[in-house]
């Protein structure tokens, strides 16, 4: 344990010294702004060359913090540690508040209060709103009341009242989904599977098309057979459902391949952030003048 700690301390000291040297010599990870008197706008290292942009301490500190947060999360790969836990705690708090703020400013103010009290909202926060109340605006009292009832979940008493809005949410979700899924995922899918088993391409036999259609039709049929658990999987049914399993395995293989692909892209953008925005080791977009 002691040896491990020594190695890590050594590594961190070396990395820290390198970073310090780089920050002093290159000045990496600086974010620039341009002060135009009435507004301060985002700027870049190019403008800094002309001496019209200045480093923003606020934003530069932010960028370094973002880099440290990124490293703090990565540190979990080695072992759980306080840095990771702090980062995790921050993200939970910030995201919950973020969604709340968005919910208030993007929906509750314009779509709820803006409908109920248009003139007030216009004068206060949304000058673009029409001050005239819709004749049916009283309908919006319903979601307001349901919303207040929903908040009863947080109250020590009367939590059962929160079931009403919940019931509404569940009911509408069920209603929306029932139709949507039957239409798009059932009927349309059956429709798309009714394919010609001998495909013709401008009057000539189309081998690839025929093969493709056959595979899709047989595959869907075989998989559905496999899903019908109520029938005993024996004999022909057993054979077909086994074919169905093979189809599903290929499907899962494809899903795995695609998933891997996606995950790696997510890692790549984080490393690009560290190397490009923070450390200035690479500059693929020409964001900075050559050193």
């Amino acid at each position: 344990m002691n040896r491990e700690r020594m190695i890590w301390t050594g590594l961190l000291v070396v990395a820290g010294l390198w970073l310090l040297g780089r920050a002093l010599w290159v000045g990496n990870g600086v974010v620039y702004v341009q002060d135009l008197g009435d507004v301060t706008v985002s700027s870049d290292a190019w403008e800094a060359v002309t001496e019209t942009a200045r480093p923003s301490i606020f934003r530069t500190a932010g960028l370094w913090l973002a880099a440290l947060f990124t490293l703090a999360i990565f540190s979990f790969l080695y072992r759980d540690n306080p840095f990771y836990k702090i980062a995790e705690a921050v993200v939970v708090g910030v995201s919950a508040a973020y969604w709340m703020v968005v919910g208030v400013w993007a929906t509750m103010v314009p779509n709820l209060f803006g409908k109920l009290f248009p003139a007030t909202i216009k004068a206060w926060a949304m000058p673009g709103l029409s001050p005239v109340r819709d004749p049916f605006s009283w309908l919006y009292l319903v979601p307001l009341v349901l919303g207040i009832l929903l908040m009863m979940r947080l109250a020590p008493k009367g939590q059962w009242l929160a079931r009403w809005p919940l019931a509404f949410i569940i009911g509408t979700t069920a209603g929306i989904r029932l139709v949507g899924f039957i239409h798009a995922d059932f009927l349309s899918q059956i429709n798309s599977t009714v394919l010609p088993l001998v495909a013709m391409e401008s009057g000539r036999f189309d081998l690839a098309g025929t093969l493709g259609n056959l595979i899709v039709v047989i595959g869907v049929f075989a998989c559905l057979t496999y899903f019908f658990f109520s029938i005993e999987h024996k004999g022909v049914v057993g054979g077909v459902s086994r074919l169905g399993i093979w189809f599903l395995m290929i499907t899962f293989g494809a899903a795995f391949g695609y998933t891997v692909m996606g995950r790696i892209a997510l890692l790549a953008i984080r490393l690009e952030f560290l190397f490009d925005d923070w450390l200035w080791l690479i500059d693929p977009t020409g964001a900075r003048p050559p050193m």
Partner: peptide
């Protein structure tokens, strides 16, 4: 109404937290 309740649910989420 559903969409407005969805926004209020964000507030509920914050309150729960």
């Amino acid at each position: 109404w559903f969409d407005i309740l969805a926004a209020i649910a964000f507030i509920l989420g914050g309150g729960n937290l």
